[in-house]
Each structure stands twice: as C-alpha cells, then as structure tokens.
Design a binder for these strands. Structure first.
Length: 589
DNA sequence: GCCGTTTTCGGCCCGACTGTTTTCAGTCG
C-alpha cells in the first residue's frame, strides 16, 4: 500500500460525494486528505502501524476509520458504498464544461441515464431542457461542449498553448488603454499540459468594453463562451479556450495572484489571510474588523505579489511552486528556496546529428549551441539497435569520434571556447544491457541510456530492466524514463520512486527530457529526487537547431520539481563537467 | 468531515457570469 494509491481512492471518494449531492465541505475534506497524504514523505503505513492516522492534519476520526479499514481489507468502505449509488459513467460527465455535479446528478436521477451517448440523445430530444432549473440553452451548451471535447480534447501541450497565448498577448498589448498584461493560470505555473489560457490585462474601467470587444472579435475566435465587463472567454480555431480578465491597475497584483492559481494554492493563501485577520480576493488584501467586516475600498497597500505574500508572513512564492504541494510547509522552516534559472544552464547534453536521425551536422549543432550562449555540447546519436533512426555501428562510432575531434579543433581555431563531448544515446536492450561491447562503451565521454523498444513491457519487468541499465558503470544518464508522449501515450507505469532511489544510489542521473511532447521525468518526482539526492540533467533531445530552444520547457519543469542548480548536471561549467566525466562513476559527488 | 489561544458549534476562499428565474443556484477558476 502506498500513499499515492490511497490518495487516489480518497480523491475519487470526494468526486463521488459531490455527484451524490452531499455537502461540498465533506467532499472537500476528502480532497484535502488526499492531497495531504500524497505530499507526505512518511509512508502512510507507518501511521497505520502506530495507530495515529488521525494525527495527520486534515484527517479526523471518520477518515481514520476508513483508512484503517483500507489497511485491513484493501477497500475503502465509503467508496464502495458510493459506487453502489453512483454509476462510474457519470464521472466522465464532469469533464463537460458547464456541467457540474448538481446538474449531473439531477439529469441522472430524473432521466435514469449514465452514459455520454445517452446524455447526447436526451439533450437532442428535449428531455434535458424540460427538467426544472435547466432549459434550451443548457441543453445546447452541453451538446456543443461534448462535440468540442470529441474534436479537440480538453487539454493541450504547453508549447501549443504558448503559441495561442502569444497571438492574443501580442494583439491585446497593442490595444488602446492596455497598461499592463500578463499570462496567468497553468501556463504561468509551467504545467506540462494546459486546459485553458488565462490572460490578465490592466486598464482603466472606461477602456474595458473596447478591449473586450476587440478580444471577442479577434479573427481566430470561433465561439464566445462568456462576455462581461471584466471577464470574457472564447474558443479559438485551434480549439483552445482563452479567458481574459480586465481590471484596473491598482488591483493587478491581487488579480494576478488569484488568476495564476492553482485553485488549491489560492484556497490555502486565503485561509492564511483569514488566520491573520485579513481577507484576500482578486481585488486586494483587506483588514477585517472585530465583526469580520471590512471596507473594500481600502485594501492593505500591496503593489506586487511579493507584497501580498509578505503580509501573509511568506517570501515570494514562484508561480511554478503554487500547487499546494508543500510550499507553505517549506517556508515555515526556510527563508528562501534556491530554484534553477535558465541562465544557470551551461551546456547541452542530449542532441542528434546527421550521423543518425538529426537534421544538422555536428559543426552546425555546435554553432547553434554557441549562438545560444552554451559552452559545450554532448552529442548523443542513436546506437546500433535503433536501426530505424540510423543508429551507429561500432565502426561508425569510431568514425564519428574522428569527426568530433576535427570539429573541436576547428572551433578552437575559430576562437571559440567550446567543446563537443563524445556521447551516445544507447538503447536499453530488452534484458537491460547497453547496446555495445565494453571496449566501445569505455570510449565515450558519457552515455545516455534510453528505452526505444518493447515499451509496453510489464511495469515490474520494466523497472528491473531500467535498474540494470542504471547500475551499469558506463551509464551516465537515463533518458526519457517512462517513454510517455503527453496526451498521446501513457508511458511505462513502473515504480518511479524506486527508480529514482536506485539511480541516486548508483550515481546515475535521470534526465528531464525538455521536449514539450515528453517532459519526462515528471516534475512530481522532484521532491523524491531531492530527498534521496538524485541528480537530473535538462536535455533538449534536439534533432535540429530549433529544438535547442525547447530547453525553456525543461527548465520550467525542473523549477516546478524544486530542483536547485547543484542538482542539475548541465549547470556545471565546461571545466567542471569534463572533470566529472573523467571521475569514475562511484566516486562522483 | 475537520477544526479551534475568540470557538466543541458553526464556520469552512471568493467573486463573475450564465441561465432560469423573478431573487438565485450552478459553474468556473
């Protein structure tokens, strides 16, 4: 039994309680307990053994009873009971924008349906519109939302969102009366997938209507979901939802904080304000009087987000950390957090050339790195098992080494202080071995070991395979550990906590693949990595020059995973990393 | 369902927008 598994069951209980029409605060208690247990570093089993589960904050007598029962029987009684009452088909309905738990339960109860297809049918034949509290427009909205979901899916990758965000950001910035503009929401928090794009504009009230008008009539807009004086939502032809909020400049800091979220982080900051006799909303921070009333015309003077946090006895919390995943607890005992910055990165460690499936020569890739301010390139073409990608035979490896020597000489002659390292992206074979004989392996400066075949291996076997590769003295870095493709392919479900620990023990680095399609290792394992001292490397896996710019996404994810520069391999200078590569693996720090 | 140096009961983050109402519930972020 692990914390994650229990947390998932508690979360599902919260969802079903809402669908069952129970008090929202009760449902929220299950959400809170789930988050608490998921973020705890102590295994829940220790509390169960010590019979002090209810000493965990947010868990009282009732939840503790459930958890003990789960320890005994492997089942959560409250969840089993809810499953009897609520068909699981309804959970999917929650993904339909505009349809929440109350309406879902009403439709289910009164029309006796549980499947999405039945819902479509009942919206079309008018049954839904006839229900009390519903109507024609509600039914139409449900139909259009379902059609939209089927066409585009609910979320998109961060890079896709960035391109839509840029279009609207540039457009709005040019509108008369716009004093300031900022991206907010999950894009600002650097989440790997984005639901909708949130943009915040500061403008005087008199300009608001014309800004809203310009926004909702932009040529990319195919549907207006809502339009008000301060808030509007649209859908773009790429299928993305964009929310715009226009507020006077004096509210900008509070609004940015509110609009950036996460929802859970906001709930916690507002509760914190309450504890200090204040109230926080998107218009500012307000002092409450004895009766709990306040004058909303006179906020506490806070010009920036940092000012608001300071009033709540906190340092500025970087947007990437605002997930209510331990950031408040951290600042109870620490004054600051040292987070990786893009400028800390000194070199590139995962890139391909025309020797395998890359688009550019070694020299071109090196110049691309120099242009971007890096001081080294670890070239890693594919190994021989990756025949589909032009993987290198042992003979071609040796020929490539000669070319790398020539390129290094040429770059030195041209006056560049830059070095190309001889690396390889070695396939991890089905049995966990690397792809060359030892004498070839020993000739590389470093090796990235990645799985490119038999991806759907059973999780336990996959973990053994990865652990064997990671323990190999020639394996420097594990590449894209799960093989996931965001929103497309799930990736291996092996126990990543176990892999992180194993790699920390063997001084093997696990990369954060910066390709926005992967972003693998996931940031959620950052705390585990921190706890056991695992190092990472932010790697673009570049197959052309443009992909070198994907580093931005990798850095965002590393920040989200709480990595400091010391735990990121490619923050080392050229000199430091040369020494590090030369040091035998088991002696590395 | 949880929680408490104002509290063991009565709160729990809070406001905008929509649709269905005729003063408000539901949804969203």
């Amino acid at each position: 039994m692990d914390n994650k598994e229990l947390a998932q069951l508690l979360e599902e209980t919260g969802v079903l309680k809402r669908l069952a029409g129970e008090n929202d605060f009760k449902a929220a208690a299950y959400d809170r307990a789930a988050r608490q247990i998921e973020n705890m570093e102590t295994p829940i089993a220790e509390y169960i053994e010590g019979e002090n589960v209810d000493s965990i904050s947010g868990i009282g007598k009732s939840l503790a009873t459930q958890i003990y029962a789960y320890a005994d029987t492997g089942r959560l009684p409250v969840l089993d009971a809810l499953h009897e009452q609520i068909p699981s088909g309804l959970i999917k309905w929650l993904d339909i924008p505009g349809l929440g738990p109350k309406k879902i339960y009403k439709v289910h109860r009164e029309l006796g349906i549980t499947e999405m297809a039945e819902l479509v049918e009942k919206c079309r034949d008018g049954s839904v519109a006839e229900l009390k509290g519903m109507g024609e427009k509600t039914a139409e909205k449900i139909l259009s939302s379902i059609a939209f979901m089927e066409k585009f899916g609910e979320r998109c990758r961060a890079d896709q969102a960035a391109s839509v965000a840029k279009t609207f950001n540039d457009f709005l910035f040019g509108q008369p009366g716009v004093d300031a503009i900022s991206l907010a929401g999950s894009s600002r928090r650097r989440l790997e997938t984005i639901g909708d794009i949130d943009i915040l504009v500061a403008a005087k009230e008199l300009h608001s209507p014309s800004i809203m008008e310009a926004f909702t009539t932009h040529p990319d807009v195919v549907e207006i979901l809502a339009k008000g004086d301060t808030k509007s939502s649209i859908r773009t032809r790429e299928g993305r939802q964009v929310d715009l909020r226009v507020i006077p400049e004096k509210h900008f800091a509070a609004a940015l904080m509110y609009f950036t979220g996460s929802k859970e982080h906001n709930i916690a900051t507002r509760a914190r304000a309450r504890e200090r006799g204040m109230a926080l909303n998107e218009y500012g921070l307000f002092q409450l009087d004895d009766k709990g009333d306040t004058n909303f015309d006179e906020p506490v003077n806070t010009k920036t987000e940092a000012d608001i946090y300071r009033e709540l006895d906190l340092p500025f919390i970087e947007p990437e950390l605002r997930e209510d995943r331990g950031e408040f607890a951290w600042f109870e005992s620490h004054e600051k957090i040292d987070l990786l910055q893009a400028a800390d990165i000194q070199g590139i460690l995962h890139a391909h050339s025309t020797w395998s499936d890359g688009a550019c020569t070694i020299h071109e890739m090196a110049l691309g790195c120099i242009e971007r301010g890096y001081s080294y390139l670890g070239l890693t073409d594919h190994s021989r098992a990756a025949a589909y990608a032009g993987g290198l035979t042992a003979e071609r490896v040796e020929a490539q080494w000669k070319e790398i020597d020539q390129v290094n000489q040429q770059l030195a002659d041209e006056g560049h202080c830059f070095h190309v390292f001889k690396g390889i992206e070695s396939d991890i074979l089905g049995n966990g071995e690397l792809d060359y004989e030892e004498e070839i392996l020993a000739g590389f400066d470093f090796i990235i070991a990645s799985v490119h075949s038999a991806l759907d291996m059973e999780a336990g076997k996959m973990l053994e395979r990865m652990q064997k590769a990671a323990a190999n003295p020639y394996c420097t870095i594990i590449g894209h550990p799960t093989g996931r493709l965001l929103l497309k392919r799930k990736g291996s479900e092996m126990d990543l906590n176990a892999l992180v620990e194993h790699c920390a023990d063997h001084k093997t680095v696990i990369e954060i693949n910066a390709n926005p399609r992967r972003l693998d290792l996931d940031w959620r394992y950052g705390r585990k990595a921190h706890e056991c001292g695992m190092m990472t490397s932010i790697n673009p896996d570049a197959h052309n020059l443009q992909m070198l710019d994907d580093m931005e996404y990798g850095v965002g994810v590393a920040r989200k995973g709480w990595y400091n520069p010391e735990r990121v391999l490619n923050t080392k200078s050229l000199e430091e990393i040369s020494t590090w590569f030369e040091t035998p693996k088991n002696e590395r720090i």
